[in-house]
């Protein structure tokens, strides 16, 4: 079980990981986008960080919703409405809960993916964040069904997200700015898939073996 103070700690750590990787994410976006993904994400999580103290003792729904709203209002690029909707939809699925278990976590992933798809209308294989999110979700579900604990489940998700990021190097972007580049987008990893991997790694960091 993960309680709300642990979730706030995890969200704070996601923010740290994003700010550490901000330059890297922006550089990836310079190659196939408009050079702002890391800047955008860091601005979003800075707002989240400011609001974390006020979320103490709130339920999971309220925490996720606030994180989503902050991301929407502060990010300023496509990743804002996409990750923002992901967090808000995830929050609706765990509203009222003061603790979440592995099952809730898998539900959160499902809702996050459906939020990104609702907003961005993308499918798997279009060189977007979904190419890390979907395989990570599938791997985590599989690990959970095999009876693995939270740490092993998260590690399996991180591994699949990393593979997903590698996979984005091999495909042409058909959604978002990178789609303007067509074939020229091949060989570059997707910034959004990479930021998802960074975030999931940050979650996994916070659980012990």
């Amino acid at each position: 079980m993960t309680d709300s103070s642990k979730v706030l700690d995890i969200v704070g750590h996601i923010g740290e990981a994003i700010s550490e990787n901000a330059q890297f994410l922006t550089d990836l976006d310079a190659a196939i986008g408009d050079n702002d993904h890391g800047v955008n994400m860091a601005r979003g999580f800075k707002k989240v960080e400011e609001d974390l103290p006020g979320l103490k003792d709130k339920d999971m729904g309220a925490i996720f919703k606030k994180v989503g709203m902050d991301i929407v209002s502060a990010v300023g690029g496509s990743s804002g409405p996409l990750y923002g909707t992901a967090f808000m939809k995830a929050g609706a699925a765990v509203a009222g809960k003061m603790e979440i278990d592995l099952n809730d976590f898998l539900k959160i992933m499902d809702e996050a993916i459906s939020g990104v798809q609702l907003r961005g209308k993308a499918e798997k294989g279009e060189k977007t964040m979904l190419d890390a999110m979907m395989p990570a979700r599938d791997a985590m579900r599989e690990a959970a069904e095999a009876g693995k604990g939270i740490k092993e489940v998260l590690d399996a998700g991180v591994k699949a997200a990393e593979d997903g990021v590698e996979y984005t190097k091999t495909i042409i972007a058909t959604k978002g700015r990178a789609s303007y580049l067509g074939e020229r987008s091949i060989g570059h990893q997707d910034p959004g898939a990479t930021s998802f991997m960074v975030m999931l790694k940050a979650v996994a960091d916070k659980y012990e073996e």
């Binding site: 300023g76 804002g80 409405p81 923002g84 907003r119 978002g176």
Partner: peptide, 10 residues
């Protein structure tokens, strides 16, 4: 385009 569209939708 892009986020203009998605953010307006929200």
């Amino acid at each position: 385009m892009g986020s203009s569209c998605m953010t307006t939708e929200m």
